[in-house]
Design a binder for these strands. Structure first.
Lengths: 165, 165
DNA sequence: TTGGAATGTCAACAAAGCTGACATAAACTG
DNA sequence: CAGTTTATGTCAGCTTTGTTGACATTCCAA
C-alpha cells in the first residue's frame, strides 16, 4: 500500500522503488490497451489504426505531417494505416485549402462511430482506475506521466490540451 | 497544472479529463521506453529482449512458463527471444532440479551487465520524473497504475514485489 | 525559374507478435 | 504399468507495424 511514502524521506527514490514503478508502468499499459485491442482484433485493424483514429478525432482537419509528429512513426508506416482507413470509409482526406500539398484528415460518420466505441472501452477502464484511486492519486498520476515524457512530446501533449479548452 | 483538482468534485471524471489521462499514458510510455530502445537499437536486440532480461533479472531461476505468464506472449515468440539470448551467452538455461521438464533461467555475467545498462537508463528517466513530481504524486501514480492493471496481472505484479522485500 | 517542402507510393526488409502441428521428456494418475 | 497431462522446444507460415531507400508529383517561396 503506502510503501511509497516511507519514513525515510529518500526511500521513494531507492532502486527498488523505481523498479516497482517501471513494472507498474509495464503491467498497467497492458491493461490500458487491452479493451480497444479486443475490439480491434475482431476487425482488420490494430493498435496503429486506433492511434490514428484517436488523434484525428481529437484534432479534426489535422495534417499528415502533424500526425507523424504526434505518433512518431514514418510516413510510410502511417500512410499504410491511413490508406486502409480512407479506403474503408472511416477517414476522409481532403486537399488543404491554403496549402494544397497538405491533406486534411477527418473522421467520417463510420469513423466517428468506431472511435466512440474504442474510446468508450478505454475510458471505462481509466475511469474505473481513477475512481478506485481517487482524485489526489489522479493528480499525482498525471504529474508523474508529464514529467516522464520527452520534452518535444510534452509540448505536443500540451498543445493538444490547450486546443480544446 | 492543477486542472485535475477542479472545484467540482466530479470534474476529474469528465470525458475530457479521462481523455487527457489516456493521452498522457500514450506520450509518457514513449518516454518510458525511449532510453533502453536507443541502447538496444545499437545491438541486434529489441524491446522483447529487454522485457525478458528484466524479468529474468528480477526473478533469477524463473521458468519459461512463469515468464510466459508475466509477458503475455506465446511460447513460440518468447522462445525465439530466449534462444538468441542463450546463444549469445546472456542467459543461462538449466534443467530444473525438482521438475526436470522445467528450465531455470538466469542471467550470465554478460547478461547482468546489459541488464544493468538498460535499467540504469530507464531508472534515470523514472527517477527524474519522480523527483520532479514529488513523493505524493508518486504514490498517486502507483495507485492509479495498479488500479488500471488486469486483475491477473495485478496478482503477478504483487507476487514479484512480495518476493523481494 | 529553381529549390525545397509536403505528400504519396513502390519495393524490400525486420521485429515481434500470432496459429497450428508435432516431438520429447517428465510427471502425474488411475 | 499404461495412459494422460504438462513443460518445453521447434518448424513453418502468416500478420501487423515498424524501418530504409528511391522516386514522382505538386506547389510554395525566394
Amino acid at each position: 500500500m503506502g510503501q511509497v511514502q516511507a519514513d525515510d524521506a529518500q526511500a521513494y527514490l531507492s532502486d527498488e522503488q523505481i523498479r516497482q514503478g517501471i513494472e507498474a508502468m509495464f503491467f498497467a499499459y497492458r491493461g490500458f490497451t487491452a479493451d480497444p485491442d479486443r475490439i480491434l482484433a475482431t476487425m482488420a485493424y490494430g493498435r496503429a489504426h486506433h492511434r490514428a483514429i484517436h488523434f484525428i478525432a481529437r484534432s479534426p482537419g489535422t495534417t499528415v505531417n502533424n500526425l507523424l509528429g504526434i505518433l512518431g512513426v514514418t510516413k510510410q508506416s502511417l500512410n499504410r494505416v491511413l490508406r486502409t482507413l480512407v479506403e474503408d470509409g472511416l477517414v476522409e482526406s481532403t486537399v488543404g485549402q491554403i496549402d494544397k500539398r497538405e491533406r486534411n484528415l477527418r473522421l467520417t460518420e463510420d469513423g466517428a462511430r468506431l472511435e466512440q466505441q474504442l474510446s468508450d472501452a478505454q475510458r471505462a477502464r481509466v475511469r474505473a482506475a481513477y475512481n478506485t484511486a481517487g482524485p489526489d492519486a489522479v493528480a499525482g498520476f498525471r504529474k508523474v506521466l508529464e514529467a516522464m515524457m520527452e520534452p518535444d512530446l510534452r509540448r505536443k501533449y500540451n498543445a493538444i490540451r490547450e486546443h480544446d479548452q
